[in-house]
Amino acid sequence: MSKHQLDARRLLCPMPVIRTQDKVKTLSPGDILEVTCTDPGVLSDIPAWSRINGHEYLGHTENHDEIVVTVKVGG
């Protein structure tokens, strides 16, 4: 299990979702991915994407205009 980061700042939805999806494909079940975003749309899109595709959405933190969402890769 390892932890990974992805920079999706300044991308508008669905680009952050696409980048997350493509990155997750390269990871293993149980890995954690933290995605830094600026489009608040990710707060709805990444949890939905995670639910649909069998990953676990672990929540988000916000710092000024940056949002970090965390996903645990499903099996």
């Binding site: 939805c13 669905p14 680009m15 979702v17 696409i18 999806q21 608040p40 749309g41 709805s44 899109d45 939905a48 994407w49 639910r51 649909i52 595709n53 069998g54």
Partner: peptide, 20 residues
Amino acid sequence: KRNNALWVAEELGIKLHIVD
């Protein structure tokens, strides 16, 4: 705010692949 393609997939209970 929602992405309707994701919403549709969730309604159907299917996976969705978004391609750039």
